[in-house]
Design a protein around this nucleic acid. Structure first.
Lengths: 121, 121
DNA sequence: TTTCATGGTTTCCTGTAGGTAACCGGTTTC
DNA sequence: GAAACCGGTTACCTACAGGAAACCATGAAA
């Protein structure tokens, strides 16, 4: 049985697809990438995140944080303060997403420039 | 008025957020990234894409392709064949997404490895 | 003349993502 | 004892993303 170039492409392509799907599933939802992006600037508390991420409701923030923690991307630390404060921080694994976030943010930045330039014409 | 480090962080962070949101809006939906990923291997026809992207329905493919074309990421070329065939191809701008796709696919690949390794324990 | 292929569109239906708003428990401050 | 702050949870609601299946026009082939 001969292996055609098409087959190789097909295989490479399938793996590619699986990988993309995996990443996007982990980062699914409107807010996860934003939360990770926010935390990539340093650890933050619940209210800090809520203030930092414009428009997010407490319910969503709490839910998304739980999923991120389940997936080992962030840690949740309850501090012994009064009133109780909770710190969220990227794990090492969470930090491994930095290249992903950065390249997405970079593309978005230059895309926004392009759109603005086009408006000026 | 003094500019604090926090303010700078805040500004950097806001821009970051906008950029992330912009990119993700363009690539929103379950299939767009997969379509672009598929086309990054070379131009394809409608049926080729449908076969290549496991599970996508014609309706979704057609809809997503329209949006991608509107955003200038792909071109649609109707060929003078019988039966009519249509070629979809990434534009130069679409190709500029390659680093984004690649880094997402790379992360997904190593994430999948990690999960499999953890299962072996 | 019936069937097959291409590249779709249309209709119908459903799950769920995500929004709003009220509420909660513990603690400190007024 | 009322109000405020933190970090949530709960209940309720709905718009829309997305799936399934049927349908359509064109033309070639059988």
């Amino acid at each position: 049985m001969k292996i055609e170039k098409e087959d190789l492409d097909q295989t490479a392509c399938t793996v590619h697809h699986l990988a993309i799907r995996d990443t996007m599933e982990l980062l699914s939802g409107k807010w996860k990438l934003r939360i990770v992006g926010s935390l990539s600037f340093g650890k933050k508390r619940f209210m800090g995140l809520k203030a930092n991420i414009d428009g997010i409701a407490a319910k969503m923030l709490s839910k998304e944080l739980q999923e991120l923690e389940l997936n080992g991307l962030i840690t949740r630390t309850v501090l012994n303060t009064k009133p109780t404060t909770v710190e969220y921080e990227l794990t090492a694994y969470g930090h491994s997403l930095k290249p992903v976030i950065d390249v997405i943010a970079d593309w978005g930045t230059q895309h926004r420039k392009k759109i603005i330039d086009e408006m000026k014409l």
